[in-house]
Nucleic acid binder design. Structure first.
Lengths: 336, 336
DNA sequence: TTGTAGGCGTTATCAA
DNA sequence: TTGATAACGCCTACAA
């Protein structure tokens, strides 16, 4: 049988064993004060022998800090978000913080009650800049430190970390234009504010050219929607030269279905997305995409949050540099 | 400016406002006792007006429960694990628990100190059954409730949730055998105990047949290793009829590199993996795989853990039913 | 049905 | 340099 959960030693036990006061133990283990070599040795020894480690909850009750950070992501199955989590986890580790991951995928927005409860048990929150207004308001009301990701902060009082969505679109648009493509379709995800920005960026890249634009709306930024919309986009009306999607997941779904429909990419139509997820690189054809620096965004967001919690006053809207990754889906098929 | 973090109301404030004792408030909000309609109304109203919610840490100090569960995953970028997390998150939500995700990817094994610290701040832990022995021992010493995933528990005293790895291999082997394939290579990941079991299952499926087996070792179960080993497996010696990999990520890497090498799948060689991740289905050729029920495993593990925490005495080794997903990579290419 | 009071493990203030 | 001791916010016997 697993050992019963030990009623572990308390700071008082340690203090007694080391023949010092609890205050001394506390200050010493927290490194907030030095003591005589003798005292320190005794305490260290007592801690060792009793196998004591401090109770984070008891500590939290007086310090008001839990040592936990919450990160609210919109879909844990989207590699873009898992990369963010990875980045955030790394900085968190450095700062000695734990990451509580809340997946909002099931409900369109995380439920208010759940979010409030989460806010109550963390020292800060990393959340998407595209949470709906009422959710944001509830969040602000809790007074919890917040850093937003994905786009500019919905309230100028808060930090944010993102890439420039317009610029990302523009880079991609420029690439398509240079490839001589002129009929451009876009599968957007209007729920995300920056879906429109990406699209605007793409379009603006064709300034001064005769180009034809058309856009479609995905109900969710997932492969299944890409698959669903494929026939609409490819087989109704005349075929575009290129299809840009709000994210790589939509693009991957689109690619899969295009293949099923017998439409050749990029020979008949080019395809490109955003996020630069791994599976875009590995697929056939490999997917042209704009790297939105998922991992770096997560890492930076956590860093900013740690700063805020530590009492930093300055506010940042970090904009990381994105990068166009040109691959087969907008250029040419490898032999085979 | 974000509002300063409010010094929120305490249970005493509520008690005073409702003209009752703190005990009454406590019992009422925890649902551990009913009171007269009048009292309940007054308390409810006071809670509302003061916007009070209890401090989880203060509560934890007396109850000994944090309301947090830790899940230690080996690579958050592997869709197999994110699906597990998703499943775990769902049951956690139902049970009102939070999920602290610890990614062990960077270090081979999670560092002992980190794990101990984590154990200290959660009510239970979901961890891989393939953690190295010293880590396990440290874990057991903490007395934290643990549920293992991926394989049978490393210690018979603990719960576990997994699929039958041998059976999964056998199902896949059977499929390959039925397809008339006889020269089978395996890219394993020896660090995982069940890599060998899967391989044994595959081999046993050929009982009574003249078959030729060969195996290779991946240093990590990631696409890059699949890419790296591709040329070794495909171009040294004579080409196998089929290559089975420890997981889908290896297979995806292998497929990508095979394509680069001009080796056609499945015409020249069949490829199959384990886990049935989404990106296997979407790729070209789509990937044959055994669905190891990632999400269900996570969900079940969390459920078991909740039971243990609630005081359940019976021990379970849940074995979920896996399922072979036959796709193009072992059958035939779609036109194009 | 409701209240009193002590205790949970730690930190922080202040005095020695 | 060290120690008493009062918080911290909540839970829970036990009492009324």
């Amino acid at each position: 049988m697993p050992p019963a959960r030990k009623r572990s030693a308390t700071i008082r036990d340690v203090a007694k064993a080391a023949a010092v006061s609890t205050a001394t133990v506390s200050k010493f283990v927290n490194g907030s004060q030095r003591f005589s070599a003798d005292v320190e040795a005794r305490v260290t020894r007592a801690v060792q022998e009793l196998g004591w480690s401090l109770n984070p909850m008891a500590r939290g009750i007086t310090t008001g800090q839990s040592g936990n950070i919450g990160i609210v992501i919109l879909d844990i199955r989207n590699p873009h978000f898992t990369s963010m989590v990875k980045g955030a986890a790394r900085s968190a580790g450095v700062a000695g913080l734990n990451l509580i991951v809340a997946d909002a995928a099931e409900s369109k927005a995380p439920e208010l009650a759940v979010l409030r409860a989460l806010a109550r048990r963390v020292d800060g929150l990393i959340v998407s800049a595209r949470l709906p207004q009422p959710v944001l308001q509830a969040l602000f009301d809790t007074g919890t430190p917040v850093v937003f990701y994905g786009g500019p902060p919905p309230d100028p009082a808060y930090h944010s970390v993102c890439c420039d969505n317009y610029l990302a679109g523009r880079m991609l648009g420029r690439h398509l234009r240079d490839r001589g493509l002129r009929k451009i379709s876009y599968i957007g995800f209007p729920t995300a504010r920056w879906s429109a920005e990406r699209w605007r960026g793409v379009q603006d890249a064709f300034e001064g050219e005769e180009a034809r634009f058309q856009d479609y709306e995905a109900a969710a930024p997932v492969p299944e929607e890409g698959e669903r919309l494929a026939s609409v986009v490819l087989l109704s009306g005349d075929m575009p030269d290129a299809i840009v999607t709000f994210n790589d997941l939509l693009a991957l779904g689109l690619l899969a279905e295009a293949r099923a429909l017998g439409v050749r990419v990029p020979e008949q139509v080019a395809v490109a997305g955003f996020d630069n997820i791994t599976y875009g690189r590995l697929g056939s054809p490999s997917l042209t995409s704009v790297d939105m620096m998922s991992e770096a965004v997560g890492e930076m967001a956590m860093q900013r949050l740690a700063e805020v919690i530590a009492g930093a006053q300055t506010r940042h809207e970090d904009v990381l540099t994105c990068r166009l990754m040109v691959r087969e889906s907008t250029t040419r098929q490898t032999p085979g």
